[in-house]
Design a protein around this nucleic acid. Structure first.
Length: 327
DNA sequence: AAGGCGCACAACCGCGATCCC
DNA sequence: GGGGATCGCGGTTGTGCGCCT
């Protein structure tokens, strides 16, 4: 756009003339901006920048405020719940980062976009498939998302166990855990998704709210193995014999009924178990998971172990693999 | 110890949409 | 209604840091 180019050109001139700063923000600039917004409010970023005495473009001020200084920002690693929501919403809306961010309170579109590019796209690359391909979407839907659900449930159960332990129980809470039948669903708003998403796990007749962030360890792509695993979090070894996350992925009947208001058709994942398929029953070869159970996905010799599962599930891989293999 | 490399995240850029005078 | 100003979004780049060799 010509207008934009003119603006940019003038900005460039200002930068060249030393009237505008670029690059990382200093603490002093942050304080200036925060103080000014606190007393005058947001908006009118160009004039705000001038009035606040910031040698920055209004655009830069806005971005700094929205992505870094806003008080309601939620810092820290993306939780499994958030990962699950990102995967689901992206499958529905694509790269509509701001729209996706609206459903992750405290998270910015930039943060989600970066997460997607650095984590998810990396896996697509390692799988040698396009991130927008049906093949990769199926991998997400049928493999990653169910496991995220299980992770969330596992952490939740571990937390429940810990609570039960406080009441005098001795790791027996898991015995009361209904057969694993996890599902998750999103409530509906105008977009078909709750503005404040609530996740539920259904286990038998029990429905458990999952968006209790405090109950679930955060995921860190750089987390050391086991550092955020349920067992290590529960601390007292209450899950030594009855870890709920040991159930094979295929055992979890999971689905979402996030209704798409525009189509009125529920986007169902009830068919997560592919037709005629007992879900993946891969085998572990060395440290590589090889599944021959995903022919429909077109992911021949799908290798989970060859890429960084940790960044998706943040689970103690060796423990998890060992357990799922019944070793 | 040091240089290379990759990753994660902050910041910038381009441009269409919307607002407002 | 027109045009400038501003906002907001998605894509891209820059940079700091940790890990590896």
């Amino acid at each position: 756009m010509d207008m934009a180019h003119e603006r940019d050109a003038s900005s460039e001139e200002e930068v060249m003339a030393g009237e505008l700063r670029r690059g990382p923000w200093t603490v002093e600039e942050d304080i200036l901006l925060m103080n000014y917004v606190a007393s005058h409010g947001e908006g009118r970023w160009n004039s705000l920048a001038r009035s606040a005495g910031l040698k920055r473009t209004g655009k830069s001020c806005r971005l700094r405020w929205l992505n870094y200084l806003r008080p309601d920002l939620r810092r820290g690693n993306i939780t499994p719940q958030e990962q699950l929501l990102i995967l689901e919403l992206h499958s529905r809306w694509g790269n509509r980062w701001s729209k996706i961010a609206q459903h992750l309170p405290g998270r910015t579109d930039n943060e989600i976009k970066n997460y997607w590019r650095t984590r998810v796209q990396k896996h697509a690359k390692q799988l040698k498939c396009d991130v927008n391909s049906q093949q990769f979407k199926d991998v997400m839907r049928y493999l990653w998302m169910p496991r995220l659900v299980e992770r969330i449930q596992a952490a939740s159960n571990a937390n429940a166990n810990a609570v039960a332990g406080d009441d005098g129980g001795h790791g027996g809470a898991a015995a009361d855990t209904p057969p694993l039948s996890s599902s998750w669903q999103l409530g509906a708003d105008d977009d078909g998704i709750c503005a404040s998403p609530e996740y539920y796990l259904t286990a038998g007749d029990h429905h458990q709210l999952l968006n209790n962030h405090a109950a679930v360890p955060e995921v860190s792509s750089t987390a050391t193995a086991g550092s955020s695993s349920p067992s290590s979090d529960s601390g007292t070894g209450t899950t030594a014999t009855t870890q709920p996350w040991l159930a094979p992925v295929g055992g979890a009947e999971w689905f979402t009924t996030a209704c798409d208001a525009s189509s009125s058709a529920a986007v169902s994942m009830h068919d997560a178990v592919l037709p005629g398929q007992q879900q993946q029953q891969g085998c572990l070869i060395g440290d590589t998971w090889v599944s021959s159970e995903l022919p429909e996905l077109g992911v021949g010799d799908f290798e989970i172990g060859s890429f960084d599962v940790e960044s998706i599930w943040s689970m103690d891989d060796s423990l998890w693999y060992t357990q799922t293999q019944g070793v």
